[in-house]
Design a protein around this nucleic acid. Structure first.
Lengths: 167, 167
DNA sequence: CCGTTTGTTCATTTCAATTTGAACAAAAGC
DNA sequence: GCTTTTGTTCAAATTGAAATGAACAAACGG
């Protein structure tokens, strides 16, 4: 490989790593996940873990953990390479998978939890309103109920987004 | 105020704080922001900063910074109270504001940046493909172009979401 | 079997983001 | 003008999440 090709390959790698680091951080995932995926994304051939460790300068531990998360997201898959017993990894172009995972695992549980919290809040605010017949208590109840509407609206949005991305 | 009312008021406050801490964390905002908003949300009357500091047990610094962020989001507004020179704060039920702010300030700049990165990546991959006529170089270019499509799709989604929430 | 390669786990370290609190500024009342 | 109250700023401390790397396990080859 000539010197300038190697150079631009490295530059491409850097851009890809950067791109995906920024991407995964939107979803609150660690930087190393973005680095690994970014490297695999522009690699023409599947890479073994020690290549990933070397090229990114990260630890074996990070690479191992990162790869297993990425596999669980369906964002990378492992490939058998003839006459090499090491596991090789390849990026899947599964943008919707990682996003869907974010919605279903990060967002959905919180929304679920939030629903229950809001129920309890309504109950307490009703109680307060009954004993303490002030304008204040009533308006707090009203607000909480308005918030419940927003919560529902948000939840309805998620399946729409997922569908749009899968379409 | 009777003992049981005061008690359930405190419980309500705790639930609200919890709810909003969890909410803001989805958007990568600090916990204190959620605490402050949660407290104001269930307060019948506007509160001065020192009340917020006392009730939440946070520092003056956090409260000051948090309130100014919340004001900038349009999530709280300040209210003048007769014969009290302290600034009083009230929660606005502006769920869409905070979400819109997230999209426009956190997401949009990243997407913008991502667009530029992808352009550079395409350029480099084209170069690589021209000099190095292997299957690998060509397939890397194809992937990057596929990613560009996803990026566009994501960007188109945002105005839709914002509209849905504002509607 | 035994040594070597490959990969995982988890206690410790590192690092970044948030919170604190003390110093400072601004405004108000006396 | 001086004191007190109110609010901001920012360097330092705290905290929590992620990365490290050493110890361990598993799989393979000879």
């Amino acid at each position: 490989m000539s010197a300038d090709i190697q150079e631009s390959t490295e530059e491409l790698r850097g851009l890809s790593v950067d791109f995906f680091v920024s991407f995964v951080q939107v979803f609150g995932l660690p930087k190393s996940i973005g680095q690994i995926y970014g490297l695999l994304f522009v690699s023409p051939d599947p890479l073994p873990m020690d290549e990933i460790v070397n090229q990114l300068g990260i630890s074996k531990g990070s690479a191992s953990q990162g790869l297993s998360l990425l596999k669980s997201l369906g964002a990378v898959s492992s490939i058998a390479i003839h006459a090499d017993r090491r596991e090789h990894f390849e990026a899947d172009l599964n943008v919707s998978r990682i996003v869907t995972h974010f919605f279903e695992n990060r967002l959905e549980p919180r929304l679920e939890h939030g629903d229950r919290r809001l129920e309890e809040m309504v109950a307490l605010a009703r109680l307060a309103k009954r004993s303490d017949r002030t304008q204040g208590a009533a308006s707090v109840l009203t607000r909480i109920q308005a918030l419940q509407k927003w919560q529902k609206r948000g939840r309805n949005l998620i399946p729409m987004v997922v569908r749009w991305l899968k379409r």
